[in-house]
Amino acid sequence: MAEAITSRMSFTSLKRKQPKTFTVRIITMDAEMEFNCEMKWKGKDLFDLVCRTLGLRETWFFGLQYTIKDTIAWLRWIKKVLGHDVPKEEPVTFHFLAKFYPENVEEELVQDITQHLFFLQVKKQILEEKIYCPPEASVLLASYAVQAKYGDYDPSVHKRGFLAEEELLPKRVINLYQMTPEMWEERITAWYAEHRGRTRDEAEMEYLKIAQDTEMYGVNYFLIRNKKGTELLLGVDALGLHIYDLENRLTPKTSFPWNEIRNISYSDKEFTIKPLEKKIDVFKFNSSKLRVNKLILQLCIGNHDLFMRRRKADSLEVQQMKAQAREEKARKQMERQRL
């Protein structure tokens, strides 16, 4: 009897101690998962849990994205998850995405999982034409994407039509040529066959090495208005800030590299970029909303931090990660040779 009371008591106290939670859905580039998130959790608590679940250590490139009134926003680390302007119905949904891009994918993306998530995200942007990619580069990229998915080309397995269901090229590229799907498949397969021996990780890295050389890779564009009221585009990326004409997102009219900017600030909708060089004029512009200004400033701070960090020695954590990745690569290569 006494035992029964004790066990009932401990059950009650356990029940009382259970913190209040809500359900969060996280959508990554290739998976969806749900977590019970405590009411008091801050953005960082949830983000760390997602990274731990994915086994991702190069966390600094990523963020949890949500959309509010057609504007994208990122979860802030020090603010409570529910303190954000997120729809309050459960599950509260976030997209786990790369927020910042490396300057050099080969040097900076160490873990296979990091490379894979970048590969999937950049491939989607290219196929959806968010990034302009010339036709010849699109074909070469498609051939690496096929190598990553199908492994080495084997004509006895990869028969005519094996790519029929795959989305491999941007529609714009397909429309530029009078070629049947079979002709595209033939062309892509000819290059795919050239990549024999490349592992999935290597093929994905080759893909990223090509993609990072396209002009729009890693650039976040924002519609702005200069002091004269002219509409322009502001681009924020790993190297700095860029100003574009509306009709040309490829070549900036002006650029401000991060190491030539003294200060960036905004008050209400007005944004100010103060160059380091005093002779260069201060650049002022207006964005569409205060919410957009917040996003621009967040991206500026994050990209600037990474820009400075890249120019210093690697942290112990990164050194260790790189050493592990090298060992792992060497081990895989040995195994392949043995086979």
Binding site: P135, E136, V139, N175, Q178, M179, R187, W191
Partner: peptide, 27 residues
């Protein structure tokens, strides 16, 4: 700064030429 697509220039040139005969006039 290395040229864009530096290690892939040869492959890209070959693909460009191979696509050329099929280009739409508007393209």
């Amino acid at each position: 700064q290395p040229a864009k697509f530096a290690p892939y220039q040869k492959a890209l040139r070959e693909i460009r030429y191979s696509l050329l005969p099929f280009a739409n006039e508007s393209g």
